[in-house]
């Protein structure tokens, strides 16, 4: 019975989100395909979202335990994640349109060949 109610420390969730963010940065640095680089950015956004939800849960539990402070603040972390999702959707639409335009102009997706702005 105690096994069913075992708690997972929230630090583990935060560590997972830090690991996801770092993997996203590694992908951003090492991947050579424009679309995969873009996917790494989405991975970083998701890592940050997980830490937002974790802290929102911590705040919510704190409010439930102490009944102090405004309860509406406890869900603001989740609302932040909601806005991040909206912005990510807009960003994905515009970014992929830019990728299509770049592919039309240069006929390649390799980031090494898209170097017009290189010094």
């Amino acid at each position: 019975m105690s096994f069913l109610h075992q708690e997972v420390p929230l630090a583990w969730y935060l560590l997972l989100s830090a690991a996801l963010f770092s993997l996203g940065v590694v992908g951003f640095l090492l991947k050579r395909n424009l679309i995969t680089v873009f996917m790494s950015i989405e991975l970083m956004l998701n890592g940050v979202n997980l830490s937002f939800v974790t802290f929102a849960h911590q705040w919510h539990m704190h409010f439930l335990n102490t009944q102090s402070g405004p309860g509406a603040d406890a869900v603001k972390g989740q609302i932040f994640v909601f806005f991040v999702m909206m912005v990510a959707a807009a960003e994905a639409a515009v970014g992929l349109a830019i990728i299509i335009a770049v592919f039309r102009a240069r006929a390649t997706l390799a980031v090494d060949r898209i170097d017009l702005m290189k010094l």
Partner: peptide
């Protein structure tokens, strides 16, 4: 930093939309 257990501290859609 606390912990997370199952079915504890659930935020319903109503709470979210209220804010």
């Amino acid at each position: 930093l606390g912990g997370a257990a199952i079915s504890q501290g659930i935020t319903t859609t109503e709470d979210l939309s209220r804010v």
